[in-house]
Design a protein around this nucleic acid. Structure first.
Length: 480
RNA sequence: GCUCCCAUCGUCUAGCCCGGUCUAGGACAUCGCCUUUUCACGGCGGUAACAGGGGUUCGAAUCCCCUUGGGAGUACCA
């Protein structure tokens, strides 16, 4: 039997990084075992769901490279539709069947009555387990009459009085005691089904074999287990992945700041880095690697390596992962990304050789793609660097004025747009041999004269990338 | 409150299932060193953890129990 997994977001907001992680795990597992990854939209809460968010979430998943095999936009006729809002008739059919079998019943209680029962339960220090009059099958006939007369009622599932045990791939054996939950609503009085019910019907009908989702669903699972049982449906394999938490160790949410994927996308994080980092939160690579791309993970991904405890989301490590991915990336792709950044006119006008050389030189200094334009501006195009304390110190060295005037003369003589590495070496040799300067005064002196900085990338690579007119202006600026 | 889940460096984690090879390994962060050919790169190194208490055992980070701490759920939300 082929593996079928699903990611089932509710379109009630942007795609959250926790959701992205869950989606990623499902995707990875499907790819690792040659299964099918399904995207299902859980939009039964009409008030909170909206189509715009559905689109946004799908865009974010696509950006991350988490592509589904089946979904609203890629329906398999055998399983469609993939939006729960379009599957109402299916849920209703199953709900009615349960009512007929007396495994569920109509409940005409008003909101007020339910509130009263809850308050009474709270007062008595017990869980609000439904004990309303409609639970008693003696009222079934009356209920049927009222429904036939067109009255509205919720449908409540009759929770069996027994304990359930789940064998979870991550949590191990989980036992839900008897009476953990009371009879719960599966269809609202407005006719719309509720999550715990739809989820089971869909997973069953869509032949889902493995459910990989957040631990926040672990307690829900007992309700789902009951429904599977009532349906006589085969249980999928469950893996309840630990939650992502913020610095206060609470479940990661909006108040922790940047928790939607689109924020990272807007800041031009690399999607591969994002996936890499998210994967590391609660899952570990068998050989303890921490930088990898999707293909690398697919080859070794398994459900056996999940951590059972929650993971704190730490943006510092994400930044590091991002910088590692930049270093790993080939020049052509990086150049393409850099050219999409604003304020890169100068960069775009350069020759392919210049672009390659600048990428080679600068990529080790960058954490984000957005750092490239900044570095080019700061290190290559800046004609009047600020005189820092460190720079002033270098300028005050005894040998520096000699170097400065020599460099000014040499740069003044250059006719081409750029100098070559050989030319630079010639100047260095001159300063070293003829002027007798060596070591730190030599390198830092020449660096100061040509860049106006006290430190920075390797001169022999940096200077040939710097336009000669910029060098001229710098020297003039420093000689003032 | 009740129920369920969890517990290794500040953080992510390896090791735990199948006790000895663990004076607990890696990574991020942090600190220091490598420099009379510089450097935001790179290299090397340091600080830093088995929550506590009982058991079981010749031996426990690993198995069991309790305590403590943390998280989640407790909806006609998902």
């Amino acid at each position: 039997m082929t593996v079928r997994v699903r990611f089932a977001p509710s379109p009630t907001g942007y795609l959250h990084i926790g959701g992205a992680r869950t989606a990623l795990y499902n995707y990875l597992y499907a790819k690792a075992v040659g299964g099918t990854f399904i995207l299902r939209i859980e939009d039964t809460d009409l008030e909170r769901s909206n189509a715009e968010y559905e689109k946004l979430q799908m865009d974010d998943l696509k950006w991350l490279g988490i592509t589904h095999d089946e979904g609203p936009d890629k329906p398999n006729p055998k399983y469609a539709p993939y939006r729960q809002s379009e599957r109402s008739a299916i849920y209703m059919k199953y709900a009615l069947e349960l009512v007929q079998k007396n495994l569920a019943y109509y409940d005409f209680c008003t909101e007020e009555e339910l509130e009263e029962m809850k308050a009474a339960a709270a007062l008595a220090g017990r869980d609000p387990i439904y004990e309303g009059k409609w639970k008693d099958p003696a009222h079934n006939a009356e209920a049927s009459r009222r429904i036939a007369a067109g009255e509205k009622a919720a449908i409540r599932f009759r929770a069996p009085k027994k304990a359930y045990t789940l064998n979870d791939k991550v949590k191990g054996s989980v036992t839900y005691p008897e009476n953990m939950v009371g009879d719960f609503v599966i269809v609202r009085s407005n006719g719309l089904p509720v999550y715990n019910f739809c989820c089971v019907i869909d997973d069953h009908l869509m032949d889902i074999t493995h459910v990989i989702r957040g631990e926040d669903h672990l307690n829900n699972t007992v309700r789902q287990l009951m429904i599977y049982e009532a349906l006589g449906a085969k249980l999928p394999e469950f893996s309840h992945v630990s939650l992502l938490i913020g610095h206060d160790r609470q479940k990661l949410s909006k108040r922790h700041g940047a928790t939607s994927v689109n924020l990272y996308r807007n800041e031009h994080y690399l999607p591969e880095a994002m996936c890499n980092y998210l994967c590391l939160l609660g899952w570990s690579h068998p050989t303890e690697r921490d930088i990898f791309d999707k293909q690398d993970i697919v080859e070794v991904f398994s459900l056996e390596r999940f951590s059972a405890s929650p993971a704190m989301y730490d943006i510092e490590k994400l930044k590091w992962v991002n910088s590692e991915h930049i270093k790993k990336m080939d020049n052509a792709s990086l150049i393409a990304l850099v050219e999409k950044e604003p304020e890169t006119e100068f960069f775009r006008k350069q020759t392919p050789e210049w672009k390659n050389a600048s990428i080679d030189l600068l990529k080790k200094y960058t954490q984000f793609v957005t750092d490239f334009p900044k570095l080019v501006n700061d290190l290559i195009l800046n004609e009047h660097p600020e005189k820092t304390d460190a720079l002033k110190e270098i300028l005050s060295w005894e040998t520096t004025p000699k170097i400065l005037s020599f460099i000014a003369d040499e740069v003044g003589k250059v006719k081409s747009d750029y100098i070559t590495e050989a030319e630079l070496n010639g100047w260095m040799e001159h300063v070293k041999k003829d002027m007798g300067v060596k070591g730190k005064p030599l390198f830092q002196g020449v660096r100061a004269a040509l860049t106006g900085h006290d430190h920075g990338p390797d001169l022999k690579f940096l200077i040939p990338l710097t336009p000669v007119n910029v060098l001229k202006n710098r020297v003039a600026h420093l000689n003032k």
